[in-house]
């Protein structure tokens, strides 16, 4: 691990040290140490049940919602420990957007879906302001042209890929600086997936992105760095090209060559 750390410049957006997660008596994550750089895409890969989703949910404390889930260790975001009691969870989540495996638009209009975050946080000063935020977010999510003329339609009336982009728009409308994506394309067809991937490539100009994916190719296409998880442990973390061409650990190699997984 040490040599990985020395490779990477000192200013990290997210640093985790010795993160352990327990579900009741079962340990789901063991001692995760990871540094994530600003405005890069970091991919988490590994076979299912390896803990990558659990890990990404630690970063905005979504695991608080799960009964009997305990998180230990330090998670520093911009040099603040998010697990400390001083951290305001509402503020934290406003700074960190999240996109889920299955598109989950609220059963409201497209406009209200995007406006939801700004409204609760009181970001918009006026109605025009809110209109602007909605438009900007939809544009950034690449959805504006498709829904421009039917903002009042239900979010559920969109196709799967559009719904997922709506969820991305909803997340960035709050103006976060980190975006967490938990297998955002697993419920989508290849064409919609390509659109989302293109979008992620554009978004990384502005946001630090952590993406969980079950597709190695997607990780290779999108990310700067990749972490390989196996059975609750982080096996290897390196620049993506290194992971896929020259893995240091034999388990990583076994996974990317398709022998396990």
């Amino acid at each position: 691990m040490k040599d990985v750390g020395s490779m990477i410049p000192n200013q990290y957006k997210i640093t985790t040290s010795n993160v352990n997660v327990d579900y009741g008596s079962k340990r789901a994550l063991h001692d995760i140490n990871l540094q994530i750089e600003e405005k890069e895409v970091t991919a988490l890969i590994g076979p299912s049940g390896c803990g990558k989703s659990t890990f990404i949910r630690c970063l905005n404390r979504m695991n608080d919602l799960i009964e009997g889930c305990k998180v230990e260790g330090k998670i520093m975001i911009d040099d603040v420990d998010i697990n400390s009691s001083d951290t305001d969870i509402v503020e934290l989540r406003a700074r960190i957007g999240m996109v889920f495996q299955k598109p989950n638009p609220f059963p409201k209009s497209i406009y209200d879906n995007v406006a939801y975050g700004p409204r609760i946080h009181g970001i918009a000063k006026s109605n025009e302001d809110l209109d602007n935020i909605v438009m900007k977010s939809l544009k950034r999510a690449g959805l504006w042209n498709e829904v421009e003329d039917r903002l009042d339609a239900s979010g559920l009336s969109l196709s799967g890929g559009q719904q997922q982009r709506l969820c991305i728009a909803r997340a960035i409308a709050v103006n976060p600086d980190i975006l967490l994506m938990d297998e955002p394309c697993s419920a989508l067809d290849p064409i919609a997936t390509a659109v989302i991937e293109e979008l992620i490539n554009e978004l990384k100009e502005r946001y630090t992105i952590v993406i969980v994916t079950h597709s190695m190719q997607q990780a290779a296409r999108l990310s700067e760095k990749t972490a390989y998880f196996h059975l609750g442990k982080m096996i290897e973390y390196d620049v993506t090209s290194n992971i896929f061409t020259n893995p240091k650990h034999e388990m990583t190699e076994a996974y990317i060559s398709g022998r396990i997984g």
Partner: peptide, 13 residues
């Protein structure tokens, strides 16, 4: 948007 504004709003929420 000042910090103060956010803080009062948070307190209200």
């Amino acid at each position: 948007m000042t910090d103060n504004f956010i803080e009062t709003r948070l307190r209200k929420r």
